[in-house]
Simulated assay, not measured.
Amino acid sequence: MSDLPDLSERLPATRRALHGVAELVMAGPQYRTSGTIRLRIVPGGFATVAAPELRVDADALITAAGARLPLHEVTYAALADAAGVDGGRPEGLYHDSSGADAADAVEVDPEAAAHLTDWLAAGDAALRRLAPGQDPVLWPEHFDLALTLDEVNYGVSPGDAAIGEPYAYVGPWRPHEGAFWNVSFGAARTLTELGGAGPDVAAGLAAFLEEGRRQAGASS
């Protein structure tokens, strides 16, 4: 993974841009075509789970025909048109969103995008180890990757308005008490707290999710 301090000023804008692509160019068209908003993690980025077949590879959108569309110097509407899809968010399904508008410019920094997609890939691997047989879902409304086990949500986020850097979380459906539970929705640990952008992050992430499962079970 790329070095977080060197990218900290570029991460928020790239995160918002990727969130907008996930919502307006991928999930919205997929919902109108195939009836689902779910997205999935793939090598180098994320993709739809049904038609239209689209995937993000760091700073480009790849179409089913193999066209590579750069994620910069283009609007969301123009990007959707170039991909041949009916752009726009899935209407009427949720209240939270990227806040992106079809006329807004898409500007993805390649290094920041690689950092964020590497984090999501690490999260996908950790969640699959936690729950073999389950497929983690990248949800377009919050742009986080998650699954649910025994009324507890486990996930990773590339960051948001509340926590500015990438983080992992454990969110029980019912409130839990104790030192482990450090945020209003449960427990969260940032990428820095989990070992930073180096080789230790995978172990730290796995350990946090496993401890979250243990703590949730002990408190239920």
Rank of each mutant, 00 (worst) to 15 (best):
Y76V: 00
Y76S: 00
Y76I: 00
Y76R: 00
Y76E: 00
A77R: 09
A77S: 13
A77D: 08
A77E: 03
A78R: 14
A78Q: 07
A78G: 14
A80K: 06
A80P: 14
A80V: 05
A80Q: 03
D81N: 09
D81L: 04
D81Q: 09
D81C: 10
D81K: 10
D81R: 11
A82I: 08
A82R: 10
A82W: 02
A82D: 09
A82L: 04
A82N: 09
A82G: 13
A82Q: 04
A83Q: 02
A83M: 01
A83T: 05
A83I: 01
A83W: 02
G84C: 05
G84F: 00
G84V: 04
G84M: 02
V85C: 10
V85S: 10
V85T: 12
V85Q: 03
D86T: 14
D86M: 13
D86I: 08
D86W: 01
G87A: 02
G87V: 05
G87Q: 03
G88T: 03
G88F: 03
G88H: 06
R89G: 12
R89N: 08
R89Y: 04
R89V: 01
R89W: 00
R89E: 01
R89F: 01
R89I: 02
P90T: 01
P90I: 01
P90C: 02
P90M: 01
P90Q: 04
E91I: 04
E91F: 05
E91S: 13
E91N: 09
E91H: 14
G92V: 07
G92N: 08
G92Y: 08
G92A: 08
G92W: 03
L93S: 11
L93D: 06
L93F: 13
Y94P: 14
Y94V: 13
Y94W: 08
Y94L: 06
Y94D: 09
Y94M: 09
Y94Q: 08
Y94S: 12
H95G: 10
H95Q: 11
H95K: 13
H95R: 13
H95P: 13
D96Y: 13
D96Q: 12
D96A: 13
S97C: 03
S97G: 14
S97V: 00
S97E: 00
S97I: 00
S97A: 05
S97M: 00
S97T: 04
S98D: 04
S98G: 15
S98M: 06
S98N: 07
G99L: 04
G99E: 06
G99V: 07
G99K: 06
A100Q: 09
A100I: 07
A100D: 02
A100N: 03
A100S: 10
A100Y: 12
D101L: 10
D101I: 06
D101R: 14
D101Q: 15
D101C: 12
D101Y: 11
D101G: 15
A102R: 11
A102N: 11
A102F: 03
A102G: 14
A102Q: 09
A102Y: 05
A103C: 03
A103M: 06
A103W: 07
D104C: 12
D104A: 12
D104E: 08
D104Q: 10
D104P: 14
D104G: 10
A105P: 14
A105V: 10
A105C: 05
A105R: 14
A105L: 08
A105D: 11
V106G: 15
E107A: 15
E107M: 14
E107Y: 13
E107Q: 15
V108I: 04
V108Q: 03
V108Y: 01
